[in-house]
């Protein structure tokens, strides 16, 4: 296609992430579940944003995040990142893209149980082909950012939920991603730990210029973010600029 997806707006700036008419329909036997229907928006046009995705349970928040993060493939629609139609990429290219530019934080931490905390953290850097001293250095850096220093040779199951989530965040940050995806990252944490996570996200967004997309159902989380994307029954309900 000759017309690249540069699509600068009137200010001449290009969105970091843009989706167009995104649909995802789950097919379960005879049933079709339209979890996402014609969702379009863009993110990070003017500055790196901290965005919350909110809505009732089952409104399609996780589904949306999965499509954006390449963890699932949309039924139709387009995802454009940095001017590139990413849905046209091969699986290998997507894996590479994910590795270099995305970070993920999940509600259930999703750490590998056979690796120590430190190994979990530097795994993505290893996968990128970095050398040992490089990924150790990178690990030290992100450990400083998330405020973890001890018990790094412990396995995840020996750590508290808050610690595990910080390990997961450190892992998400190790390859210096452009976008951090977080699906209810604080849902399993106590109020102190969850506050720490949100403050950490805001700090990373403000100080490092990291774009953060976070699914949440906590109304008070809106205080930390720049914008809230509200979903309702798989459709874009409203945009709430803060």
């Amino acid at each position: 296609m000759a017309k690249e997806y540069l699509d600068p707006d009137e200010t001449g700036k290009q969105a970091l992430l843009k989706i167009l008419n995104l649909c995802r329909t789950y097919i379960m036997g005879e049933m079709r579940v339209p979890a996402l229907q014609n969702v379009s928006f863009d993110i990070g046009r003017k500055y790196p944003e901290f965005v919350a995705i909110m809505g009732k349970s089952g409104s399609g928040k996780s589904t949306l995040l999965h499509q954006l993060g390449f963890l699932d493939t949309p039924t139709s629609g387009e995802i454009i990142i940095g001017g590139k139609n990413v849905l046209k990429m091969s699986e290998t290219q997507k894996a590479r893209f994910r590795l270099e530019r995305f970070g993920y934080v999940f509600q259930e931490y999703a750490l590998l149980p056979e690796l120590t905390a430190l190994e979990n953290i530097y795994l993505p850097a290893m996968a990128l082909g970095r050398k040992k001293d490089e990924y150790f250095k990178a690990a030290r850096e992100v450990l400083g950012q998330v405020g973890l220093g001890e018990r790094l040779d412990h396995r995840p199951r020996e750590m508290s939920g808050g610690e595990q989530q910080r390990v997961a965040i450190a892992r998400a940050l190790i390859n210096k991603p452009d976008i951090l995806f977080a699906d209810e990252p604080a849902a399993n944490l106590d109020s102190i730990s969850s506050k720490q996570v949100l403050e950490l996200f805001r700090k990373l967004n403000r100080e490092m210029g990291l774009t953060v997309l976070m699914v949440t159902h906590e109304p008070e989380d809106r205080n930390y973010v720049d914008r809230v994307i509200w979903l309702k029954d798989g459709e874009l309900d409203k945009m709430e600029e803060k």
């Binding site: 290998t92 270099e100 993920y104 999703a110 993505p124 990128l128």
Partner: peptide
């Protein structure tokens, strides 16, 4: 299976 999913999500090639 879950670990395989996690590894892939992190960006480890199939």
């Amino acid at each position: 299976r879950r670990q395989i999913g996690i590894s892939r999500a992190v960006g480890i090639k199939e």
